[in-house]
């Protein structure tokens, strides 16, 4: 028999310094570790299939709730207590780019393609933001079924 694990139990298993999600809904908007930004995370498709490729999408806002469109956002996922990450090399999508190569992310939406969860269990999804107010990060826990 296998009930879902409470989020607090997951927290003991992760190495990230940020607090666990306070809501049951994965990816709900949260402050980054130092309170610099607001971040939410979603998957496409949702839920992802076991060992299927999918896209992770982070939405970035400043602390006032205004979307930030010109930051650098890195998304990654690991299973810390299994000692491994993903078997893939995900790619941060550039967003909308001008002819001169300047790229923006309308609505503050940043996509990383090539995610794959190849095992059931808790995955730690880390979002690292390098933006106008400096570097900050936030982590989420996703229970892959």
């Amino acid at each position: 028999m296998r009930p879902l694990l409470p989020v607090l139990l997951f927290a003991a298993c992760t190495s990230g310094p940020t607090e666990p999600e306070s809501a049951d809904v994965f990816g709900a908007e949260r402050e980054t570790q130092s309170g610099t930004y607001l971040v939410s995370v979603a998957f496409d498709p949702d839920p992802p299939g076991m060992s299927d490729l999918f896209t992770a999408r982070a939405t970035l806002k400043d602390s006032a709730g205004v979307p930030i469109e010109d930051a650098t956002v890195s998304l990654n996922a690991t299973m810390p207590h299994h000692g491994h990450g993903m078997m893939t090399s995900p790619r941060d999508e550039p967003g909308v780019c001008d002819d001169d190569g300047t790229c923006t992310h309308p609505g503050g939406v940043y996509e990383t393609s090539g995610f794959k969860f190849h095992m059931g269990g808790p995955w730690t999804v880390a979002v690292i933001v390098t933006g106008p107010n400096g570097v900050d990060d936030v982590t989420y826990i996703y229970d892959m079924q």
Partner: peptide
């Protein structure tokens, strides 16, 4: 395209 041949495990 997304295969990472250097994956430790």
């Amino acid at each position: 395209d997304y295969l990472d041949p250097s994956f430790d495990d």
